[in-house]
Nucleic acid binder design. Structure first.
Lengths: 119, 119
DNA sequence: CGGTATCCCGTGCGATACTG
DNA sequence: CAGTATCGCACGGGATACCG
């Protein structure tokens, strides 16, 4: 069994439907900036402004949406340091950090097959 | 360096922008059915109708779009057997097959962290 | 059987302006 | 500094009907 969704418990009657456990993750990292934000945070905790500069072209609204979704998914944490001016740090959680491993595998696949695959 | 996009050649000046080589792949598998179609085809060559039944809920138009994109990316091949009724087979290419490896890593991550991460 | 054509809708994304 | 508010558009996706 090598499919994305099937488990060892399943057989050829598998349905790759809405119930697939991959769906949630795929829909999360599917959007434009999420995986890139995780990649940026893999270098260490970052402030909102720093993330916005690294993810070139992202608007503050969209960056906020992206970070909120990651926070809701428990992949990053948001820490506010009450000060003037405001200081907010985003950081990968432990489980968020673990996600960088398969994500990095994906990146390596791209590097290795960028010529064969027209992605 | 553990970020999604940075390579060993890069340093802290990396920009996770539109130029990131991951972007193409992420935008490809980002949509609703692509990764699932790859997963289905990992079980072996499939006909259009069989894919449509496995990817429960997909409309013929969207399935066609999905398969065309995968074909354009050189990840699957489309073979027409001229007969009545028509017989069309979709099959993973070699590079398409190689993609199932990191995709499977992603699935395993989901299974292992489904409780910690609310994806 | 394996699609295309057509219509429609939700939402992800972007630009800009403004605020605690 | 770190967002929110508002507007608008493009596009992915869905339903249905039809075609070679």
């Amino acid at each position: 069994m090598t499919s994305v969704c099937a488990t060892g418990q399943h057989d050829h009657h598998d349905v790759y439907a809405q119930q697939c456990p991959c769906r949630g993750l795929l829909e999360l990292i599917a959007n434009k900036w999420t995986a890139l934000a995780v990649g940026a945070l893999a270098a260490g905790p970052q402030r909102f402004g720093a993330l916005q500069r690294q993810l070139e072209g992202v608007s503050p609204k969209v960056l906020t949406q992206t970070l909120r979704r990651l926070e809701d998914a428990n992949l990053i944490s948001r820490t506010v340091y009450p000060a003037v001016p405001l200081h907010v740090e985003y950081e990968l959680t432990e489980v968020g950090w673990s996600l960088t491993v398969p994500l990095k595998a994906l990146r390596q696949w791209v590097e290795e097959h960028v010529d064969e695959a027209r992605v």
